[in-house]
Amino acid sequence: MTRYAMVIDLNTCVGCNACMAACAMENQTPVWKNKWRTYVHDKEIGSGEDVHRRFFPRLCNHCDNPPCLSVCPTGATYKLDNGIVKVDEALCMGCRACAMACPYDARLEVTHDDVETGREFYGEAYRRSRPSMDKCTFCDHRLEQGLQPACVETCVGSARQFGDLDDPNDPVAQMVARGVARPLMPHLGTRPNVYYIDDLKRRG
């Protein structure tokens, strides 16, 4: 079995936003209203003179126990055996319960207007025909072709790494197993599959 996961190393993310742009172009998201499948936040942290700047990329965590899926009334949200949580645009009625349920703010809406703008913006190549909720798919269409997710492929800091938790030789799996890379808000019980390597430890 394959269980996909992403590790994000905050030590080498430079906040370049290449992942945002790559994802938008790959997945034809509604950039015209500033909606993305992934965001990179730019935060000032620390107190007093001990001040740091942290870049914090985020995306759907492809939870093993996804509340967005359990609330979805139509079955539009579904989970693949490899752990990827997806939305079927034909089934989704756009009630947004999934957005309410997601603790990671990972969902965005694509409205009728967006579909129309999308047709203009992405032209003939626009793939969507219905409005629906949208979210990161771990670029499963690329995985099928043996490629990495668009954001991972282009990450200039190699901060984003992608792998298979079920493969003990996969560096991503090892980082997760060793506890170097840890999930966000595990107490919520969502069992996320995006893991982060802390950047403050190194600075001591």
């Binding site: 790559a22 003939e124 282009t154 990450c155």
Partner: peptide, 25 residues
């Protein structure tokens, strides 16, 4: 109609090692 859909770093390039920045993307 032929349309450009995606730019990526050239994976064969040892210069940028298959990666490009937000501007490039």
């Amino acid at each position: 109609v032929k349309r450009i859909t995606k730019l990526a770093g050239n994976p064969h390039s040892t210069l940028n090692r298959g990666k490009i920045c937000a501007r490039g993307q």
